[in-house]
Amino acid sequence: MRCPFCAHDDSQVKDSRPAEDNAAIRRRRQCSSCGARFTTFERVQLREVTVVKSGDRKQAFDRVKLEQSIALACRKRDVSAEQIDQLVSGIQRQVETTGESEIASHRIGEMVMDGLRQLDSVAYIRFASVYRDFSEARDFEEFASTVQDAAKGGNGDGE
């Protein structure tokens, strides 16, 4: 593993432990050249998945991009980094186990919506406002009322 500080090619593993509900391994490493310590994560990647976006544009599935968009929706909410990481890992597993090499971006968006609906209603509405391209305050009001109605009804449906 290359050191992120001095780019030396050799490092020693000082500690390993499971992470992300045993879906990854967290390793503490020390560079044998400069002595700097850093952490790496190893994850199983079942298959390369391509995301098909609007206009038939394609790009590789990017866990970091998914994590950033969920974290942005959860910003300043009582949602821990661990909860976000678990949601991202769950979505990544769903994407990789579909058996398909391509997945439509709207399917990933729906997976995020389902996860956020259960995690935090404000984060759910924030994500939905971008994902569903709300253009007026009325769009927020209508969507928020469906979230409130679902919470009162207890069905968790959200729509």
Score class of each variant (00 low, 15 high):
R75L: 04
K76I: 11
V95R: 11
R126E: 06
K53Q: 12
A60S: 12
R28C: 00
I91N: 05
K58N: 02
V88A: 01
V52M: 09
Q59F: 05
C34F: 05
D85P: 04
R43N: 01
R57M: 12
F127C: 01
F41V: 10
S54V: 09
S69I: 14
I103P: 13
Y124F: 13
D85L: 04
E100V: 13
T50V: 15
A123L: 06
R47T: 15
E96W: 10
L46R: 13
A71C: 10
R93P: 02
E42V: 02
S121P: 08
S101F: 04
A23H: 07
S135Y: 10
G35Y: 00
S54C: 07
S101Y: 07
A104K: 14
G90K: 11
K53Y: 07
E48V: 12
Q45G: 09
G99R: 10
G35L: 00
S105E: 12
R57F: 06
V112D: 13
D62R: 11
D62Q: 08
V122S: 02
C34S: 02
I91R: 10
G55D: 11
D114N: 14
A23Q: 11
S33L: 06
A71K: 15
Q59R: 10
M113I: 15
M111Y: 14
S105F: 13
A128Q: 05
S105A: 15
Y131H: 10
R57K: 11
S105T: 10
R75I: 01
C74W: 10
T97E: 15
T98L: 11
C31H: 07
A23T: 10
R27W: 02
L66S: 08
D133R: 14
V79C: 02
V79S: 03
D85Q: 09
A24M: 12
Q86H: 09
E110F: 07
A128Y: 04
E67W: 04
E82G: 05
G109I: 12
S69R: 15
D114H: 07
V64A: 14
L72M: 12
D133H: 14
T98C: 06
D85I: 00
F134L: 15
S69D: 08
L119R: 03
R29G: 04
R107P: 03
T39C: 00
V95L: 14
S54I: 03
L72F: 06
G55K: 07
C31F: 03
G35N: 01
C31I: 00
Q83Y: 05
G35W: 01
D62V: 01
R107I: 15
E42G: 03
V64C: 00
C74E: 02
G35F: 01
V51Y: 13
S121R: 05
S89C: 02
T39G: 04
A128L: 07
I125R: 03
T50L: 14
I91Q: 09
R57H: 11
K53S: 06
G99P: 06
C74H: 06
I25G: 03
V51N: 12
